[in-house]
Write a protein that binds this DNA or RNA. Structure first.
Lengths: 334, 334
DNA sequence: TCTATTTAGGTAACCGTTTTCCCTGTTTTT
DNA sequence: AAAAACAGGGAAAACGGTTACCTAAATAGA
């Protein structure tokens, strides 16, 4: 069997209390005793049982990441894994472990409640895809240390952080104006799609600031997929006055848009510039390679990790904010 | 404070042993006592402390998934998250939790050693991206319950499961032959790339079986990216005798290949058919949509989870096998 | 009816740490 | 020189369960 603290104490000729004190520092122990204990630990190849330690200290040193395997255009969200890695990175720095739980929105409440009641965890990082009003109430009532990744689309008590999509929209618009484009169109997802709408808001606020007027038909809403992107691009291009740049709310829409321009033999970026959001693989592959507003999602995970650790220490901390900032990656399409 | 087993025992007028027995079933307890205990638990809103339980039982009910955030064509591996979700699914069915650890190959050894020594875990699922000869020795010496996802490319003691890429290659070739294509070309990654080479092996074995002769120039190796796919396609197409179908070792190569065919105004699938592997987003988006040999990676995670649980129960179990099977998704390119 | 077996439930040790007290002896202060 | 402060370290309770062992009563078998 592996050595325990008792074995070490016996070998060193001390009590277990002393051994514990040596390990945890900040007690007054003579150098001689420290040496004896250290040597005993060495000889026995002793490693303290972390489970026992956490149990004794009544802490778990664990955070749970609750998420659902979001399918986006039939493909699992490529951001999820990177967010998680960022989270893990921040937590492990402070000796915390990250447990992952993939679960549906309906079952999330029960799971979280149980995990808290059975003392499995110090706090939760919850992806917006699994939140609900019911969960909000639960977390509020039990005052569970938590952080939601993503902006809830209902009023809630949640603490959350999110990508600043409005800022992303602003960046896109500013970039185009700086490049000399003068009349911008926006083709987006549904009007209920918060991400798409925030990006649009950002675009419009910049245009407004620069006194650029946006004709109604230059803003289109549809599905967040390729075909819809194609269709919306056609709508925009069939006007008597064509725009000279198009902002696409996401990569899939952008792909459709580029196809449409291609079919109409319109040159990118000379006749029309194209910008989109998120640096998914095919933004680099497409001809022309797309100029993109990217998000460092790993960093978002890191931020989330730092926050939840703070929250665990000071439970009355409160945050709701756009904390992760988009950056511009200029490629060939502008 | 939350209620403990002692509180329940006191309230029910029994001993803690009895309460424990009621909770864990399979002991002889009278119905009357069971009712008393259950009621006490109810009234106190008692939930057993899982940490204490695991500690007492000397088990952790935890598996760690060790991985490194693999970048593939500069983009994090889209499979990783789904594998992990599959894993989590299988583990949670048996009451196990999944801890994720993102770490570099160099640091993986130390991490795993420490996690074992400090009794944090019952077993490991390790992604092939973090294994090394050193790790092999460590795991062998300490006989740590483990399972590697992916085939190690050196001889080792590891237990592993992997996708059957040879079978995938066979499926691709068979499909093309069935569709009436007669001379197949293969454009792949580097010759050191095991995945690409396995797929090629599968292709060749089927062609051999059907007595189809493959000219040397019909098999090309290059990088696993778009540009290389374009270049290799050109090489294959500039022969005097053109093939009538091309198998691309992955999605990126396929994209380059399709571009090349497009530029040469060769019709897909009429003049030339195209097949590739893995159902990444743009296989559905590309015109024409690509016929693809897909892998259910979620299921691979599930298999891995089931296996590691078995291995934890019976430590002398041993497995090295191709356990996850590819399936054909027919789209427009064949 | 008497013994053997089963059933029901309690006692207390145990899992491996931490931590609170407390004691002893030495040093410092007055 | 007496009192106070302090450094060093041990004893034992605590964390919240499980479980081996034991006893008494109930039941079964003869």
């Amino acid at each position: 069997m592996t050595a325990t603290i008792k074995d070490v104490a016996k070998k060193a000729g001390t009590s277990t209390a002393t051994v514990s004190k040596v390990m945890n520092g900040s007690y007054s122990i003579s150098q001689a005793t420290i040496d004896k204990v250290m040597q005993a630990m060495e000889e026995l190849n002793y490693h303290p049982n972390l489970r026992a330690k956490n149990f004794a200290k009544q802490s778990t040193k664990t955070v749970i990441f609750v998420t659902s395997i979001g399918k986006e255009a039939g493909f699992s969200n490529p951001h999820m894994f990177e967010i998680m890695c960022g989270l893990e990175h921040a937590l492990s720095e402070k000796g915390y472990a990250l447990i992952v739980k993939n679960i549906s929105e309906e079952k999330a409440c029960e799971y979280i409640k149980n995990a808290v009641e059975t003392k499995q965890v110090d706090g939760f990082v919850i992806h917006a895809s699994v939140i609900s009003v019911k969960l909000d109430e639960l977390i509020f009532q039990m005052s569970i240390p938590h952080l939601v990744i993503g902006n809830p689309n209902f009023s809630s008590h949640f603490c959350w952080i999110d990508i600043d999509n409005k800022l992303a929209g602003e960046l896109a618009a500013k970039h185009l104006l700086e490049k000399g484009y003068q009349s911008l169109a926006f083709i987006g997802g549904r009007e209920e799609d918060k991400i798409s709408m925030h990006r649009l808001q950002g675009v419009l606020s910049v245009l407004n600031e620069h006194d650029v007027i946006v004709p109604k038909n230059y803003v289109q809403h549809g599905e967040s997929d390729c075909d819809s992107g194609y269709a919306m691009a056609e709508l925009v291009l069939n006007q008597s006055e064509k725009p000279d740049a198009i902002i696409c709310a996401n990569n899939y829409i952008a792909y459709g848009c580029v196809s449409a321009l291609h079919d109409k033999e319109i040159q990118i970026p000379n006749e029309i510039g194209v910008v989109t959001f998120d640096d998914y693989p095919f933004s680099k592959i497409l001809k022309p390679m797309l100029t993109v507003i990217d998000i460092d999602v790993f960093d978002m995970g890191v931020q989330a990790g730092k926050y939840i650790l703070q929250k665990i220490r000071k439970p009355n901390l409160y945050v709701q904010s756009y904390i992760t900032f988009p950056t511009l990656i200029i490629r060939e399409s502008t």
